[in-house]
Amino acid sequence: MFRVGVAVLIATALLGIAALAFGQDVVPIKVTAVVKVTPNKAGTPSHPQGVHVDVRAKIDIPHDYDPPLVQSVTIWTSKAGVYNGAKFPTCSFRAMEHSGLRTCPARSIMGHATVKADADGVNSYPKVTIVNGGAHYIYFYVVLSTPARVQQPIAATITKLTSGPWQYRLDFKVPRNLQIVAGIPLRAEAFHATFGREDWIASTYCPPDHKWRWHAEGRYSSGQVVPANGTIACRS
């Protein structure tokens, strides 16, 4: 779908799932993240460079607040690369709903993530598998066992844009049964994801300021739209 920005897009999307994206305008939240892209030397349009991404994040949310829950997330990436989902095997959303990941081709699995979350004082460790969905989709298959067993794929739609400063837009909605589990809201505290296979995500350009950019917006049950922006260092 995009370049390293694609990488950041996926990472940000996962962070939204993991944190259940509580609104920063209502609750004082501190999120710190370290994103490593290998290699960070950009490819070219004629020779795209496949990348692998490692994301580590911490989310500090005061426990004396009752924050709103995220309803959906939209992420934009800059014109610096390419998403090659159409080149790789896919796994269907319906198959994952009925049989989990058992029927997914091995080469459709593009990465994994682990979340450390608080469920009313009890630690919960949701696990996310990143699955290729072809030219227009990426799937996040979420499994958690505390405070109750939940297995749920999330579909993220990828749209290639034809105008403006961004190359791709990713949109997804967070299912209610992953926002509140057994009546308990999940509060993510830490997050680690690694993803990328061959040239599934590939960089094609490093801007003059040596920064890959992305922009994200979370929409919350309170009606808020909370923006976020970020960069990753690159070299030509």
Results as ranks from 00 to 15, higher is better:
Phe2Val: 05
Val4His: 07
Gly5Glu: 06
Gly5Val: 00
Val8Trp: 00
Leu9Trp: 00
Ile10His: 00
Ala11Asp: 02
Ala13Tyr: 00
Leu15Val: 01
Ile29Leu: 15
Val31Thr: 02
Lys36Met: 07
Val37Asn: 07
Asn40Arg: 09
Lys41Ala: 13
Gly43Ile: 04
Gly43Leu: 07
Pro45Asp: 14
Ser46Met: 12
Ser46Gln: 07
Ser46Phe: 05
His47Cys: 11
Gln49Tyr: 04
Val51Arg: 07
Val53Glu: 08
Asp54Gln: 12
Ala57Cys: 02
Asp60Ala: 13
Pro62Gly: 14
His63Tyr: 04
Tyr65Gln: 13
Asp66Tyr: 05
Asp66Gln: 14
Ile75Glu: 14
Val82Asn: 14
Lys87Ser: 13
Pro89His: 07
Thr90His: 11
Phe93His: 09
Phe93Asp: 15
Pro105Val: 08
Pro105Thr: 09
Ala106Cys: 08
Ser108Asp: 08
His112Gly: 10
Asp118Thr: 04
Gly121Ala: 10
Val122Phe: 02
Ser124Trp: 01
Ser124Asp: 07
Tyr125Asn: 15
Pro126Thr: 05
His136Arg: 10
Tyr137Gly: 10
Ile138Gly: 09
Val143His: 12
Gln151His: 11
Ile154Ser: 11
Ala155Gln: 08
Thr157Gln: 14
Thr159Lys: 12
Lys160Tyr: 04
Arg169Asp: 11
Phe172Ser: 13
Phe172Asp: 07
Val174Ile: 11
Pro175His: 11
Pro208Trp: 06
Asp209Trp: 01
Arg213Thr: 03
Trp214Ile: 01
Ala216Val: 01
Tyr220Val: 10
Gln224Arg: 06
Val226Met: 12
Ala228Pro: 02
